[in-house]
Write a protein that binds this DNA or RNA. Structure first.
Lengths: 340, 340
DNA sequence: CTGAAAGCGCTTACAG
DNA sequence: CTGAAAGCGCTTACAG
């Protein structure tokens, strides 16, 4: 194996053709190269172990074959969050299949203003998972437009007149509907929805779905309990307070599995038996779900599939010049556990 | 905001200096630029919203400011695995701080031979998490050498005479020792270590640590139970079989938390109470750990810190030309749960 | 089907 | 302290 880095020039010299021809062979422009020449060039490439410089290609053709994934987060979780990890996993797997690589970047919400992260990214497209309050998000939108890259936004609502942004999300509304119908069909007449204070679009959708389903059932009462955050202690404090004040829901629909599990501790302490005296549901069924007993009735998040879908949508967009579909919603599925 | 992409040329023209001077300002070569010139260049950059092309810089200087993370895996887990996710998280966070980006790539063990993943990577350094059997790993080593990039290997033993490979791992041996000493100090006289058949170096180390600690305690018996895989069903089958044949360990030390939790089901079915009749320990304490009851005594994995350490080691290596330390071991910490 | 020339946007290595 | 020239390794746009 030689010391120096090989270039097209060396290959061209070895086969005695021009670099142009080598380039054509490498890029599969078969109609521009003779059968025999092609064979000889390929042989030389294999033999000498040449690999093209992606950097040089990128500089000249402004195609990077690389997608960026930027995650905005408040707390210390990022890839520790199972949703984010699953998204990244799906993205990575699908992009690899299409010959793209994935560059990941976590950005703290308050560092956003500098937006160094974005500016450094030299990619053909960007995937974004936002978080934080709406005003921050608004500034972000402005920023995104200035990047002139196709963008996939995860778990956000449809975009207005922004043609180069594609929204990909799971059917949170449908999930809310499924869960509400499920507990009602099992006898619930009063439902308590527990949500964190921060307004994630996904969570609003879930609540919206519950409301929609219950509208069709005039006899069923729905209340919303807002906990300060999605942390266990906050959820438990809010629920304890609610029950102390005489609240007696037939079913508690938590905004996600973690919150449902936190709520379960309170119910257990009070000696409430599930599902007889009270029902409980979560949302998402990530990996940790199976370690908790009882198994909480929940809805399966297609998180990895969201990532794969994003990869496909973006690479198509890069090839075709526009997004085929700018609002993609993936279905969720109810899983009955032991709590309903 | 202009349509066309800005280059250094435009900035240079705007301030009426040469591109060379703009380049010097951007790269902080302050001794080469006058105070006043520098100020004016910076003003123009801000005003016009110029950002340098990382690609062009990379082509010319062969510095990518990018690190690759390649994960070899057999099963469908990749970033779904909490260890991998934590590693990636730490890497990403620390690299971002140092102005580097992270490119992630998952590679199936059996696709390794093609090694396309590696060849495509244009990075300044590589982090690797291997898996699979030893022979595969051996081929890999050969491959790594041919890449001519500094490499960090996670959770592998020290490398022989390979100067540009740095091993970073947690103190699995020490963790094994801690757990063994702990159960012995609480009265265990016979210890059963449960490991999966696949030989991960990290797991061999854990077993080695247990053996080491028990050597110092002549009265204590140690046995090793090999389960076909680390899957729940396999662990449970192996343990059931062992107990059926009359095995009566005082303590079961599982190779990790998942396996400990799987084992717990078997102990529970048999009506064994923990920790009185039998003790149980795991390893790693990832996020899911807290969802299981009882809390299993375990050891905290510094996984995220391993990632951060890798980032620091690699960027230093890139700047200094060689690794400062080629075998870095991070400490683990015992957490007593309710099972010992 | 094949190739010589120009250039992507920077940095290196010089000369002033 | 400042700048003109060359070149990193490819692809684009042409001419034959």
């Amino acid at each position: 194996m030689s010391k120096k880095k090989l270039t097209m020039k060396e290959i061209a010299a070895a086969v005695d053709v021009s670099v142009m021809t080598v380039s054509n062979v490498i890029n599969g422009r078969d109609h521009l190269v003779g059968e025999e020449t092609k064979r000889r060039v390929k042989a030389a490439i294999d033999e000498l172990g040449y690999r093209p410089s992606a950097t040089a290609r990128a500089l000249r053709s402004s195609r990077m074959f690389s997608i960026g994934f930027i995650v905005l987060y408040d707390e210390r979780k990022f890839l520790g969050d199972p949703f984010i990890a699953a998204l990244a996993d799906g993205l990575c797997a699908q992009l690899a299949e299409q010959g793209y690589s994935l560059t990941i970047q976590g950005v703290f919400t308050d560092e956003l203003s500098e937006a160094k992260a974005f500016r450094r990214m030299e990619t053909d497209g960007l995937c974004l998972l936002l978080s934080g309050s709406q005003p921050t998000k608004y500034n972000l939108r402005e920023l995104l437009k200035s990047l002139r890259q196709p963008i996939v936004l995860f778990q956000e609502g449809v975009q207005r007149a922004e043609p180069d942004i594609c929204s990909i999300r799971q059917d949170d509304r449908g999930g809310g509907r499924l869960l509400a119908e499920h507990v009602v069909s099992r006898g619930a007449r009063s439902v308590l929805v527990v949500v964190p204070q921060v307004e994630w679009p996904a969570i609003s959708e879930r609540v919206g779905g519950v409301r929609e389903a219950l509208h069709a059932r005039p006899g069923v009462e729905m209340r919303v309990l807002v906990s300060e955050s999605e942390k266990d202690a906050d959820v438990q404090a809010a629920l304890t307070n609610y029950l102390d004040q005489g609240g007696k829901p037939d079913a508690i629909l938590a905004a996600n599995d973690q919150m449902a599990i936190a709520a379960h501790t309170v119910l257990e302490q009070r000696g409430l038996t599930l599902p007889d005296q009270i029902m409980l549901t979560g949302f998402n069924r990530f990996n940790f779900w199976r370690y908790f007993s009882p198994k909480v009735t929940t809805v399966i998040s297609p998180a990895e599939q969201l990532g794969r879908t994003a990869a496909t949508a973006l690479t198509r967009r890069i090839d075709d010049g526009e997004f085929e579909d700018r609002d993609i919603v993936l279905p969720v599925e109810l899983v009955q556990g032991q709590t309903t």
